[in-house]
């Protein structure tokens, strides 16, 4: 039950993009998106989850017992790369996406901030809760990307004052979306 609570919280009421301000750039970086949103979202979720599991295991089994938690950031950098690499391998082997390959770099950009945050907050959580948090964050990111892409499609550029065109209006759209998502707070007890 707690698994679902945490997942929904990270997905909606405490959405990582809108209420924690994390991963905004990949969400607004629409022009450079080489990959369909939903599939990219799935890849990001996978990468973050792999990353969380790996870093959780390394943190609790190696860093903490040896009292070298100050090395967390360095270890994390390597784990992040490994997780991104693994996800790219998985996506290749799935066979579906062969025509369009997501690059490791792209995936790192898209998941670094989510993944990073787990290294620190998940130190207190158990593995299952961490996984719920990662999946929720990945799905939350996907949802916001879809909503924003749709909003951008509907914005009539002609009606927007020149200076606001492009990123400023996207940020403001995200802000309004964040207010709307505030309504979800309390969804989870």
């Amino acid at each position: 039950m707690k698994f679902i609570y945490i997942l929904i919280a990270a997905f909606l009421s405490e959405n990582f993009v809108l209420s924690k301000l994390l991963g905004i750039y990949p969400a607004i970086d629409v022009q450079n998106r080489k990959y369909p949103i939903v599939q990219e979202g799935i890849l990001v979720t996978t990468a973050v989850t792999i990353m969380t599991v790996l870093s959780h295991i390394i943190y609790t089994l190696i860093l903490e017992p040896l009292n070298i938690t100050y090395l967390a950031t360095i270890v994390f950098a390597l784990v992040l790369f490994l997780a991104a690499q693994l996800t790219v391998l998985i996506s290749k082997n799935m066979g579906n996406y062969n025509n369009r390959e997501i690059s490791v770099g792209q995936l790192v950009v898209n998941s670094v901030i989510f993944a990073a945050i787990f290294l620190s907050i998940n130190q207190d959580l158990n593995l299952l809760s961490s996984i719920a948090n990662s999946i929720g964050a990945g799905l939350g990111y996907t949802l916001v990307s879809i909503l924003l892409a749709d909003a951008i499609d509907r914005i009539d550029d002609e009606a927007v004052i020149g200076a606001f065109r492009g990123v400023p209006i996207q940020l403001i759209s995200l802000g309004l979306m964040a207010y709307a998502f505030w309504g979800f707070s309390g969804l989870v007890p």
Partner: peptide, 9 residues
């Protein structure tokens, strides 16, 4: 003491 809440310690 530390205790596990709904989603935080």
């Amino acid at each position: 003491t530390d205790t596990e809440g709904a989603y935080s310690t």
